[in-house]
Design a protein around this nucleic acid. Sequence first.
DNA 1: GATGGTTTCATACAAGTGTTTGAAATGCAA
DNA 2: TTGCATTTCAAACACTTGTATGAAACCATC
Lengths: 223, 223
Amino acid sequence: MASDHTRTSILAAAERLYADRGFGDVTLRDIVAEANVNLAAVNYHFGSKDELIAELFVTRSIATNRERLRELKAAEEEGGGRAPIEVILHALVGPTLRGCLGPENQRSTAARFMIRASIESVPPIRRIKNREIDHLRKFAGAMRRALPDRSDVDIYWGLNFALAMAHHTIRESERLTKLSEGKCDLDDVEDVVARVVSVATMALTAPRTEAKAPARALARDAR
Amino acid sequence: MASDHTRTSILAAAERLYADRGFGDVTLRDIVAEANVNLAAVNYHFGSKDELIAELFVTRSIATNRERLRELKAAEEEGGGRAPIEVILHALVGPTLRGCLGPENQRSTAARFMIRASIESVPPIRRIKNREIDHLRKFAGAMRRALPDRSDVDIYWGLNFALAMAHHTIRESERLTKLSEGKCDLDDVEDVVARVVSVATMALTAPRTEAKAPARALARDAR
DNA sequence: GATGGTTTCATACAAGTGTTTGAAATGCAA
DNA sequence: TTGCATTTCAAACACTTGTATGAAACCATC
């Protein structure tokens, strides 16, 4: 294994293509063409296409989770074991949003690949993805410490909605721009992060009965 | 065209399979097997696989939009041209959530197909999907009338977040159940609708400066 | 410089895809 | 019934996919 040149070329090319075009549209032949290597190299170095995807996903998954946890840990230590809910949510959605939105040149292939992975859910990834639940539980724990009065159910719903807003905004950024005729500026990433964090915080801190009861009654009528 | 039996069988089978397994995993041979018709029937009746998908999507798209607009119109007429924001949001996310969540037996194939379509975004659908923007604009208009003080930007972000929470919850319902160890009850559809509407309403009605400024300052620091 | 394991390469393979074909079957009007 | 358009069917087609093969090239070690 003198130099991993071929191996790393394949990984880089595959990640770039998958991030750009999704798993469904990219073939091994596309990848080896992009990487300037021979077709058989993929099976030689990775065993199969699925194992290539899995390796890509595992690597990036670990890196992403580490970055999010780093932000979270830092915030919690600073606050003596308890970080404000805004900061926790910020650590959760910030890295991904930053990597996927913003001006073309500063987007990260890694983040965009991870979003594809979270959307298209191809078999090799689905098998691995269950581990991510443990990672989210760490955030749920931090949120519980920040909001000891909230029920577990509310915590999980808040977590779910925070990820929902972040991921959906990334996926549908183009449509939102078109719909708003450019008024929503998806290039101002920090504004987007602030909006998501703000709404998620409201969802988690608003008094339950006041805001929810009317909507619930409404739903009953419509049934 | 004595009886559309073959045609309708294909449409029904295709919708069911696509709703269950997604576009990527379903072949024409799967569809004709499910429909008990000959393979060539698809191309005979629809021209191509893409045109079959397109017809399916157009039909369902029209039906869904009509249902949402019916709820919206009714609410606006009742309120003399201006419906409460909760009711508008309810008309936007209610039908889809109801069709995709809840006990197995009462879910609708149509709604689940539409969610697949909105997620996987296969070429024939992507081409049609632009029209949906006009449909969303009608909701944006109603929301503007309900909240005349809000800026257009805030309206579009609120709309975006409402759809985000609804769609993401549908897509990741299984993971949310697992993450919360069953504490979040995805079968109680009206509770889910109420939660989404509630949070979206807060996002749209909360005073801007109060809730958003700290988060924005936070983001600046993290940069 | 010869040796032997590692890596590359062109090529082939088997399986699966959407589509086409031309004949057979069907249904309906004259 | 005859004639004709519509619809069904089995079979084949052309193409793409991931994977496998065996020879060639490479490269460190002796």
